[in-house]
């Protein structure tokens, strides 16, 4: 699962998969702006067939946050 999330992040944000770790997030990746954050969230929804609440989307600010949130939903 982490691998699939990593791939979406890398694809949306234009990052190398290998550089993405727990703490990679909106505060330290320039391309991770609010627009791309939505792209990330929608991409993950489609990939895992889940639907986030807006509060969940707003709560996920790092790769670690996303993994934890998705884990709780699938």
């Amino acid at each position: 699962m982490e691998e699939r999330i990593r791939d979406i992040l890398s694809n949306v944000l234009g990052l190398e998969s290998a550089v993405i770790d727990e703490g990679t997030g909106m505060d330290n990746v320039e391309s991770w702006d609010s627009l791309n954050h939505i792209n990330v969230c929608l991409g993950i929804e489609q990939e895992f067939g889940i639907s986030f609440e807006v509060s969940e989307m707003e709560g996920m600010r790092t790769f670690g946050d996303i993994v934890a949130t998705v884990q709780a939903k699938v």
Binding site: I8, N11, G14, G43
Partner: peptide, 10 residues
């Protein structure tokens, strides 16, 4: 389709 489009555009 979604990841294809992103990948291709980039």
């Amino acid at each position: 389709p979604a990841s294809h489009a992103r990948f291709l555009r980039r």
